[in-house]
Nucleic acid binder design. Structure first.
Lengths: 185, 185
DNA sequence: TTTGACATGTGACTGAGTCACACATATGTT
DNA sequence: AACATATGTGTGACTCAGTCACATGTCAAA
């Protein structure tokens, strides 16, 4: 059993633990209950101006009908409204006032959970961790194809993608071109 | 927007990315399809000798009836059998030969995915990351109460809990006592 | 020996997603 | 201009995993 195996196993437990913990914090803060719903609200809040159902679908990694049903649910809950799209085919999705408030609560709960997770480290340790994580996540972006979008829960303001501080965005820009990354945001 | 907020956001994206990626690898390797099923097989393989349905329930964070249904599914799929329990009330759950093979495939897929995730780092960087992650996960164990078990997908051989190399187990031992940790395993 | 806790199990249901398909709109080809 | 094809949205029928409420059998302690 190599050192690498040990490190890999710990990484897996760590990712699961952080994701669990963040998810629980969001659920507790929520009008969300559901990870997909939470991701949709977060995406609508941070990333996409007035995305179409199809754009949302791609961010979340759902089927078209699944995305339609998701928007149905959000609309029934009064969190979202459908409007005209860029196209005769597509429709735009926008947060209501209530939806925006719910999304902001979710996002704040996520951030708070993650900040408290990092609180055991000193500032210097956090910087080191941050740099290493940036390297690893860059590698993941290089390999990744399909599925839900990595940054579906990210806080755009905290991420720093516009100032080049986000390693995920930088890796994506290197892979797909800076223009594509800006378009997605 | 502080440095801490930026780091926290990146950590969230990272945890999500690693968990997604690992989950996808397991799904691709699977007779599992479902994260809960995968976690159950992994737990049966690595941790619990012949656990009762209730012990499994606690590891996975399900309701009693949910656990019964899970075991029903696994048994229907020929991956598990029910046997007598320690008690007249409880029943034990054990992997079949087929179930053990499926669980080993899952576990191998997880390990391979995580090793390849770490491959972008040098050995020295990996050690640094490992140490920092160990600190953070220790903090999570301190705070955590309820829900699914952190190590539900861990590989016991790789984890090193018996030799004191697993920071999760060490933190749990400090919190609950060494005896309790050994009992869970 | 009765009372209460506990483990398992069942019926009825919910919620989130899928597939197969329909329809309207857009795009490109001849 | 006409037609074929691709795209975005939506619907009906269904699946699957999980819940709740409740029943049953077993254990422990008063």
């Amino acid at each position: 059993m190599s050192e690498l195996d040990h490190q890999a196993n710990l990484l897996g437990a760590f990712a699961l633990a952080v994701a669990d913990r963040t998810g629980a914090a969001m659920a507790a803060a929520g009008t969300a209950g559901n990870p997909t719903t939470a991701a949709a609200l977060s995406a609508l809040l941070h990333f996409l101006d007035r995305p179409s159902i199809d754009q949302l679908r791609r961010v979340l990694g759902l089927t078209p009908s699944g995305a339609v049903r998701l928007v149905d649910r959000l609309a029934d809950a009064g969190l979202v409204t459908r409007g005209p799209g860029d196209d005769g085919r597509s429709r735009s999705v926008a947060l209501t006032v209530e939806g925006r408030a719910a999304a902001e609560r979710l996002s704040a709960a996520r951030a708070e959970s993650l900040r408290s997770t990092l609180a055991v480290l000193s500032p210097a340790e956090r910087s080191t961790l941050d740099a290493l994580i940036g390297r690893v996540i860059g590698g993941i972006v290089q390999e990744k194809e399909g599925g839900a979008w990595l940054c579906r829960l990210c806080d755009l303001a905290a991420c720093g993608r516009d100032t080049g501080a986000c390693p995920t965005a930088n890796a994506a820009a290197a892979k797909y071109g800076a223009e594509a990354v800006r378009r997605d945001a």
